[in-house]
């Protein structure tokens, strides 16, 4: 992995060696860190998802030990058990949790797009002098704690909360609305928390767009709505895709929002995993839940990486 293609540099032999070593370290140090703390942990999750739960600390029967070598490994492979996966597919609770997570994430992503697009479009059309300020105002909430922003909505949405107080006082409704602990509250929470992730890539593509194309379409007799669908929207598609993935992928595994806003009856897989781990202390099942969640997300994540790589190539 450390086989680096370093360009020949116009320097002496001694410093060339120093540079070659430094060049290799630039790659090796972060590489090894990510291998150890990002890739290896996934393999451990995979391993533990194949082992049996046990009442011990840690609460699983080890599937194999690294010290046992190849023979131990082969022996252990024979003992791998798919019980946890059979258990997951047999219990409708888990399947429903996956389906409902995907559904909630998909609906929230569409809603975020609907809210975020006009905002990003408005920002891109704003006078160039105030655009940096608007951009900073979109980024700023991202810097404040996710937990705090979700928490803020509890006080607004609860039955005696600020939204109901306002609606009752203005006479729009005469019964308090039940929003907290419903899917609506989760949708609001996700749209609110992830809005900057949608607006930023949309703004980046819309700002670069040549507006004279829209004017040309209008001059040629296209309606405003027609011009939007035939010119603006297709040109902003890379931003739409990037924004939707940035919202959808983390939303599927979201824990804080369904836990604080969704109440006890909402089923989302991030919450299920958390409960399996912290409440039931069933580490193997929690690991199996994580493995399947990762399999569900692997396609969107790969598309996201492809989009990222394309952007890099373009900017190069």
């Amino acid at each position: 992995m450390s086989d680096v293609a370093i360009r020949p540099e116009p320097a002496g032999a001694g410093s060339r060696i120093v540079s070659a070593v430094a060049g290799r370290l630039v790659i090796i140090v972060p590489y090894v860190w990510l291998l150890l703390f990002f890739l290896v942990p996934f393999l451990i999750v995979l391993k533990i998802s194949l082992s049996q739960a046990a009442i011990a600390m840690p609460p699983y029967a080890p599937a194999f030990r690294l010290g046992d070598g190849l023979a131990g490994f082969l022996d252990a492979v024979g003992q791998f058990s798919f019980d946890n996966y059979v258990w997951l597919t047999g219990d409708p609770l888990y399947i429903n949790a996956y389906l409902s997570s995907l559904m909630i994430a998909a609906v929230s992503t569409v809603l975020t797009l609907l809210v975020g697009y006009p905002v990003a479009y408005g920002m891109a059309r704003a006078p160039a002098t105030i655009r940096p300020t608007l951009l900073m105002l979109v980024i700023l909430p991202f810097w404040t704690s996710f937990l705090i922003r979700v928490y803020a909505w509890i006080g607004i949405l609860k039955p005696e909360g600020l939204l109901n107080q306002f609606l009752l006082a203005t006479g729009i409704i005469d019964q308090p609305l039940v929003i907290l602990n419903t899917h609506t509250a989760i949708f609001i929470g996700i749209v609110y928390s992830y809005l900057p992730f949608m607006v930023l890539p949309l703004y980046a593509t819309l700002e670069k767009m040549d507006h004279s194309l829209v004017e040309a379409a209008l001059d040629l007799g296209c309606t405003r709505i027609g011009a939007f669908w035939k010119v603006t929207f297709p040109l902003s598609l890379p931003g739409v895709i990037a924004g939707c993935l940035l919202v959808f992928i983390p939303a599927v595994g979201e824990f804080v929002i369904p836990d604080l806003l969704g109440g006890s009856q909402t089923l989302m897989i991030g919450k299920t995993l958390w409960n399996e781990f912290f409440s039931n202390r069933d580490w193997p099942v929690a690991s199996a839940v994580a493995v399947i969640l990762l399999l569900v997300l692997v396609v969107p994540i790969m598309i996201f990486q492809k989009v990222q790589a394309d952007v890099q190539e373009r900017d190069r």
């Binding site: 990510l34 992928i249 595994g253 824990f255 929690a286 690991s287 996201f304 990486q305 990222q308």
Partner: peptide
């Protein structure tokens, strides 16, 4: 490995690191 953690759900990162 550099880009995946940007979108990876927190619960997966947390669980896998704990098991490590």
């Amino acid at each position: 490995m550099v880009f995946a953690p940007l979108v990876m759900p927190d619960v997966i990162i947390g669980l896998s690191l704990l098991l490590l």
